[in-house]
Amino acid sequence: MKARAIVSRHLILILYSFIVLFPFYWIISASFKTQIDLLMGRFFSTPHLQGYRDVLFSGTSDFSRNFFNSLLIGSVSTALVLVIATLGAYSLYRMRWPNWVLHSLLGWSVVFHMVPPITLAGAWYTLFRAVGLDDTWLGLILAHTTLNLPMALWMMGVFVRNVPSELVEAAQLDNARTPEILRYVIVPLVKPGLAAAGILSFIFSWNEFAVTLTLSQRSTATVPIGIGKYAQENTIAFTEMAAASALSILPAVILLLFAQRFIVRGLTSGALK
């Protein structure tokens, strides 16, 4: 009886694993097919690298530039988010702000986090055009930073509050100044939080589509924008779209294999306080 229950649990979980993995398998196998094999619905065919060659090395393909833009915007905005959120969380929770400041700031960040980013994209577009930030890396970095700040501020808040206040007070008694307390007391103790918030911020930036679509042109477009373009063209280049998609899944796979601990901690820190 017990053995049967265990086996049936595994069977269901394995079945669901197949459901999860099948679309990825399908897109990767599609990326190795020729357009004709794919359109004919041939399930098995000799693997071709043409899709990858077109995406990576053809002169008309923007993929490598998109990839570079995604990496640049993702890493710079993540660094900014972490610095701003750590300072902000420390200030809010450990520097005795009046309650209304704490509550209105956090309340506002919750509201902002909940509205569809597209509602602000129009305003950002107008604003960025007025100050010459549209279609620039700086503009996109600022937008991504703003989008991910509520999540990071809130996550770093959880970790900063977990630092025993005795430690901060002891440092203050030793005449440590705020930068020193941050550097030698807070930062070492919130490192797991920084890792979790940083990885999530990078993933969210890497995945961001709606706002980037409205604020970027060809030279600043990121990977999702490039993929969206394939699908919008009149004659869809299916194999290129498949190859580009397969390549853009790579960062997620790498982070999942090597940093899953932090991803899980980050995603669940909202559910468990």
Binding site: S17, P23, V223
Partner: peptide
């Protein structure tokens, strides 16, 4: 590990697939 994969992949790529 397997179950987590979809939520880390860009929505636009999920759409493309």
């Amino acid at each position: 590990t397997i179950f987590l994969l979809p939520i880390l992949v860009p929505g636009i790529i999920i759409g493309a697939i």
